[in-house]
Amino acid sequence: MAAADSPSTALRRRDLCSRGIRLAGKMRADVVDLLDAYVEQQGLDASASVAAVEGVPLAAVERWDEQTGTQRLLENLAAYRAFRALLAQMLEEQREQLGEADAGLGRALAAVLLQVSAFAYHLEELLRLESRGIPGEEEDGPPPPPRLSRFEQKLRGLGVLRELAHWAVRSVRDLRQLAKPSPASGAAPGLAESP
């Protein structure tokens, strides 16, 4: 059981959580717009069902309500670090495949990449607040992208953006859970025990 929060820690957490909720909400809106633009620009069918894409963190989770706060933060952090690498790969592919043909999509992609990086940093701040060790990043960086055909690249991009859009919703929910005052003390629960 984590030691009961000091009021300042609880206040700081609530502040970080509410800022995180706004950041995730904005990110989700931008990702949804980017997804629409991506689907149109890549000539894809919005209803295309994309099999789980290797290396893309799945937002789907079972017994979500039973997760502890630390689990939530750590899983979020791992996911957004992965998305940072995936979006960077997509940006590189975009330049390679389209050059300046569609700079608009490239800019939107870069903007979302920035938000993902910012959100990952925000999560690290929350973990620091709870004096939780920040897991190190994989030394040798993300695995190189698999050699894919152009269509597979397009579907992979679709899969990445869809998962990211769902992760953004999950993150908002997770942060709401973290921001909840714990029933006993009325202060926000220590990360370990938040339901």
């Binding site: 069902s49 799945l58 789907a60 769902h166 999950r170």
Partner: peptide
């Protein structure tokens, strides 16, 4: 729902 936030249709 057995899973939440799933992108699988």
């Amino acid at each position: 729902y057995l899973q939440l936030f799933s992108t699988v249709k």
